[in-house]
């Protein structure tokens, strides 16, 4: 595990405005201040359109902030991207339909110049972990949406990046698979000490997984509250019946209700 005081991600006064100056101007993020320590598991939660994906993409250097300063592992996001620090799981699985499942998982390894047999080994290990070991030779169209998303998680983990950016990775899964995947993810996190930034719409998932929960509100996208979660790890099925857990879920739910309320007050539109 990395030194717990290392800062993995630091965002200072970040603003992101799409199409500034035009009719379609959108203030997607306003005054975002956030420090994430190396090895933290952070959840972002908030109503649709509050800028969760945008924040992820800023961190991942797929977008540039309109103003403010962003550092990842002490470097610019761009440098971190060039150093291949990011494993990204997008909201949609974005598999390459011309590649088999294992070839999809091997894609980053090919790009990064891993040898053939190591590629295969890693891909198989990652697929086993997401419980899709038997589907290595299938093609994406032969898998369900949830299975495709799990392939994209295996792909993001394959090259062992130090920062995982996961945008609603389990949104398409049934409750039971989702809980199993949650446990798997915690296991990986515990073993590798990665910094994980995890977007979800599920309050219970956010509370179960992370050590801090960032609650956001829309229009303009802002952080309304950062909730510390001191529930001890390892967490398992019993955690969900812990009174402290139940209390936290209720707390986040209240915060979220307020966040949606404030968004709705602005333009009368919310989830």
């Amino acid at each position: 595990m990395a030194d717990s005081r290392d800062i993995a991600i630091s965002a200072q006064d970040i603003n992101k405005i799409f199409n500034p100056g035009s009719d379609e101007e959108v203030v997607a993020l306003q005054d975002i201040n956030l420090e994430i320590e190396a090895g933290e598991f952070i959840s972002l939660i908030g109503p649709s359109g509050c800028g969760k994906s945008t924040l992820m993409r800023l961190i991942g250097d797929l977008l540039q902030p309109s103003s403010g300063e962003l550092l990842v592992n002490g470097k610019s996001p761009r440098q971190s991207r060039l150093d291949r620090d990011y494993g990204m799981v997008f909201q949609a699985a974005t598999l390459y339909e011309w590649r088999s499942v294992t070839k999809n998982v091997q894609l980053p390894l090919e790009v990064m110049g891993y040898a053939g047999d190591e590629r295969q080994q890693r891909a198989q290990a990652m697929l086993d972990m997401v419980e899709l070991g038997a589907f290595a030779k299938h093609f994406p169209w032969q898998l369900s949406g949830g299975m495709q998303q799990r392939v994209s998680i295996a792909r993001a983990l394959a090259f062992d990046p130090s920062v995982l950016l996961m945008d609603e990775p389990f949104g398409a899964l049934d409750e039971f698979t989702r809980e199993r995947m949650n446990l798997q993810l915690l296991k990986i996190w515990n073993q590798t000490g990665k910094t994980i930034i995890f977007v979800t719409h599920s309050i219970s998932e956010a509370v179960f997984l992370s050590n801090r929960i960032v609650v956001m509100s829309p229009r303009p996208g802002r952080i309304t509250e950062i909730v510390d979660n001191t529930l001890p790890y390892p967490r398992d099925f019993n955690t969900r019946s812990d009174p402290a857990y139940i209390q936290l879920v209720a707390r986040v739910r209240d915060l979220l209700r307020d966040a949606i309320g404030s968004g709705a007050a602005n333009d009368g539109e919310a989830e």
Binding site: L82, R84, M88, F90, L107, E110, V111, F159
Partner: peptide
């Protein structure tokens, strides 16, 4: 597809890889 390109970008892929592994299969 924009997100398929972003994926390559997140790997800091060389233009050659983007051509061979994404653009050409997409064009087939």
């Amino acid at each position: 597809d924009a997100s398929q390109l972003e994926l390559m970008r997140s790997y800091a892929a060389a233009p050659r890889d983007i051509l061979l592994k994404l653009r050409i299969p997409n064009a087939l």
